[in-house]
């Protein structure tokens, strides 16, 4: 049932440019990316920078569903998306969208999770097994018979992720999955995505504005602007780069604190990406600072 994988990279984007039908400007402009299996990549940038467009190239929605002019190539585990339609890629790339409402169709959580597998025509026993797995792993057993559209926003997004993960994709792409959620639900969804990455070994591509939540677990941060990749690298380096500053992304407060402390002559050992990391840094620094002074 598994496709034989032909590449070391989960995703290879090669000289990719894309222009939607009926528009003049390129939504993506010569993008190059190589993402290894198991990475946790956060993509951010201002509105209209091409983040969503990039997401849609990864599972073949572009160029198959959204028509336009595409140059370059995308390979998912070595398979070109030009030759494969979205549903053929569904077992490699799962995609979760911003509005949970528009991606939940059925009248119970159980049926919702089964939907994708049913579409692929998989055997009933296998579907049962996967549904059970998803209900258990995403702690949805209690909501099994509930109608997804009657759940809270956070639970809806959880069901959306579970429904996609039931198809056992190797890559999970999420396009601003928390932007309609309240903070605590957003926090929980981000934690869930981390679990998918860590425990299931799935490569995660997460588009987010809320960096104070999203960066905590990221292994890589990509900044985009006007259809181009501006910076790409270690989250701690990228978030403190001058590009990040000039791009005007919401730099987490802990990073601001780190920078200001540095200006004051206090250098924490590591750029913090969460409150916990900052607190830890300050503590450690205080200890050595105190002892070295006394020593």
């Amino acid at each position: 049932m598994r496709t034989v994988l032909k590449s070391n990279y989960a995703i290879e984007v090669i000289n990719l440019s894309f222009k939607y039908e009926g528009t003049e400007e390129y939504a993506l402009n010569n993008v190059n990316l190589r993402i290894k299996e198991g990475e946790y990549v956060v993509i951010t940038g201002p509105s209209g920078s091409g983040k969503s467009t990039l997401c849609r190239t990864l599972n073949g929605l572009i160029p198959h569903f959204y028509r336009g002019h595409m140059e370059g190539d995308i390979r998912i585990f070595g398979i070109s998306t030009r030759a494969k339609r979205t549903h053929e890629l569904a077992r490699l790339v799962g995609m979760v969208f911003q509005e949970s409402e528009n991606q939940l169709f059925l009248s119970s959580v159980e049926r919702e999770i089964a939907f994708g597998l049913e579409n692929l025509g998989l055997p009933r026993d296998y579907i049962r097994k996967r549904v059970k797995w998803a209900l258990r792993n995403f702690k949805l057993e209690g909501l099994k018979d509930k109608a997804p559209y009657e759940l809270s926003g956070g639970q809806q997004q959880k069901v959306a992720i579970a429904s996609v993960m039931a198809m056992s994709p190797r890559i999970l792409v999420l396009d601003e999955p928390t932007s309609n959620l309240d903070p605590l639900s957003a926090f929980e969804i981000i934690a869930l995505i981390h679990q998918v990455n860590k425990a299931m070994g799935v490569t995660v591509i997460l588009v987010e504005h809320r960096l104070e939540l999203a960066l905590k677990y990221a292994t890589r941060l990509i900044l985009m602007k006007e259809g181009r990749v501006i910076t790409d690298g270690d989250p701690r380096e990228v978030i403190t780069s001058k590009e990040a500053r000039s791009l005007g992304i919401g730099i987490p407060k802990v990073v601001e604190v780190y920078k200001r402390l540095k200006e004051e002559g206090i250098e924490l050992p590591r750029i913090p990406l969460s409150s916990e990391e900052l607190a830890l840094g300050v503590r450690g620094c205080l200890a050595t600072y105190g002892s070295s002074y006394r020593g």
Binding site: G45, P46, S47, Q98, E176, S179, N180, H209, G248, I249, G250
Partner: peptide, 10 residues
């Protein structure tokens, strides 16, 4: 501020 980027929020 929902769905707005950093600049729009400012």
């Amino acid at each position: 501020t929902i769905g707005q980027d950093y600049y729009q929020k400012q």
